[in-house]
Design a binder for these strands. Structure first.
Lengths: 352, 352
DNA sequence: CTGAAAGCGCTTACAG
DNA sequence: CTGAAAGCGCTTACAG
């Protein structure tokens, strides 16, 4: 059986109409066979499947999407892919999406110069129905914008912040408490009293949260927050190396860098300045970067449950998609925890 | 002007037909305005845009895709997201896609148990026209399967391998030459003659390539390839730690682990066994993992240009998409290079 | 159990 | 410069 115009196995231009014609049935029947929906006699099912296989026919997803009014795709927006742990978020999300047969559209802020352009772009992902739902990690998005996102009334969860006043799903880790847990370790376990803090960029939401935790802890312990012990960084290693000397000259017992990159820079500088591992002040970070356990001394830091954040967010989206019930927005908050290694002074110099 | 059934700003159920009706023109005209295609009088353009803005109308991408017969989406398939450098590939690809206004659909092997299932899935991405093109990093895909991919006759580039006999675009880094460059460094610069090699899983294509480079170098230098110096690993740190002791007892001058994870495991074990940094044999890796420069000693390793691989692949796809010329498949091969740090013996113990 | 027909929401020649 | 109409390739009540 050779039909003019088509080559077997060439799925390029074959459509359901052709399959129907060749099988001697209607498009509706082919559709039923392919979707296992409605009744089809075993006989015609066979007949149809034979042709389908012969031509390796695969329905056009764009047409299916339009008809069924869905896409089986979830958008994911991340600040970057190179960050230490965004990959964990992706993994958490993919695990649940793959299970439900959904696809993931990935977009980052990295490739574009203008953040607001990127925001417009991810917003339209939802508006133009290119995705059924959206997961966004954009902690610098301001409230009016997030309000707009909420008004689209499509499944959308923001990661990393709570936006308490906005009716939108969020999943975040408690950065402030993370800071406080670290301070607890430094103040209680080690008995330090003079703890320096290296801030991130002042417009960073998480940087702010972490700093708040530091200050509140000091207050709780009745320690005055000394401005001389608070330093400005920009979350980069280089930036931290620049201020490292002035930090050292303030003679702190411990240095709390608000991310691991900066902690690394400070440790590096300390070595350059001739500090040995044993007389270096305690230096701790935040994030638990993939290399944090490998550096020398191994870095004590705060870990955010990135995988769980991704997983929880994806679950939330899937729920919204199936229930389509108008449940109240959820504000999920996950725990951070301190990963104790060597750089705080615990287990110091195990192999030396 | 309040139209029944619609709330301003509610883009949920408004379609082009409604916009046309409200603006008192035809759908065709609205389409022309929105796409800036064909002639439209300034007057009607204004009229239409006013309504469009008022209702925040965004055309349904699914319908556009179906009509225009495209999706502006490229699929990307990766072994995992947690690997050391896949993120670089993503970044390279995204940089060019974002520039051309394309979207990226990401899929990994990680979330699924069965590799062949995943292959079927990414193949259908192209068949069902969910994406316009596909970039695949799946070095374990066998030739018959890749043949099938080639026959789909849609833009598709395979990363990491050449598949010389198959007419399909590929972009890969030269792993074998990478190994040889490393061996050159070990043999020539350091004058080592007794170099152990730790293989990856035997079914790994890259593992094979790297091993070949090792053997060829030895042959070239007239050194007999001693089986006693070749060890089996599985690309994991734990696996390497298991064989580390037997490696040491063979007393090699240098140990070439065919990836960084294994090098790390061996270094770790060496420390545990009491080796000091100065009497440890040279230990080098492959991949340049993000933490490779941070460990102690800093790891000498081979670097693949992952960003360039991604970028090149995306460019290739974009070209295919615009030209739609039937140019011959391209086999792009990029260079690897040795990153010299401390673990080979160069700059040993700078800060000690 | 099966088919004719309308519909999903756009685009694009073709007339005028 | 603009509109009527066909088309993209499916799905889905509705009849029978």
């Amino acid at each position: 059986m050779c039909v003019t115009g088509f080559i077997r196995g060439d799925s390029l231009r074959i459509t359901m109409a052709k399959i129907a014609e060749l099988a001697g049935v209607s498009k509706a029947t082919v559709s039923r066979v392919l979707n296992s929906s409605g009744y089809v006699s075993e006989n015609t099912r066979e007949k149809v499947m034979k042709i389908v296989r012969e031509f390796n026919f695969v329905p056009d997803a764009r047409a299916v999407n339009l008809s069924k009014s869905m896409t089986r795709t979830i958008g994911l927006v991340l600040p970057s892919t190179s960050g230490p742990f965004y990959m964990e978020v992706i993994r958490g999300i993919e695990d649940v999406l793959a299970f439900d047969g959904y696809y993931m559209l990935l977009m980052t802020f990295e490739a574009s110069k203008n953040k607001n352009e990127t925001r417009k772009k991810y917003k339209s992902l939802l508006e133009e129905k290119r995705v059924d739902g959206l997961i966004v990690f954009d902690p610098e998005a301001d409230e009016p914008f997030v309000q707009q996102m909420a008004r689209i009334k499509k499944p959308c969860v923001y990661l990393g912040r709570e936006y308490q006043k906005i009716p939108i799903d969020t999943v975040s880790a408690d950065n402030e408490t993370g800071s406080r847990l670290m301070m607890l370790h430094l103040l209680e376990t080690h008995g330090f009293r003079k703890v320096a803090f290296v801030r991130g960029p002042l417009d960073s939401y998480h940087g702010m949260e972490r700093f708040k935790g530091y200050r509140k802890s000091l207050t709780e312990w009745g320690i005055k927050c000394d401005d001389e012990l608070v330093f400005c960084g920009n979350f980069t290693r280089e930036g931290a190396e620049m201020v490292a000397e002035s930090i050292f000259s303030a003679k702190p017992e411990a240095i709390f860098a608000s991310n691991d990159e900066m902690a690394l820079g400070i440790i590096h500088k300390a070595k350059q300045l001739g500090y040995s591992l044993s007389d270096m002040p305690a230096i701790v970070g935040f994030d638990d970067a993939p290399w944090a356990e490998h550096i020398n001394p191994a870095l004590t830091t705060v870990r955010q449950p990135m995988y769980d954040i991704g997983r929880t967010a994806a679950r939330l989206i899937m729920d919204r998609l199936s229930d389509n019930g108008h449940k109240a927005p959820m504000k999920v908050k996950l725990h951070t925890n301190v990963v104790v290694r060597e750089s705080c002074g615990c287990f110091k110099n195990r192999f030396e």
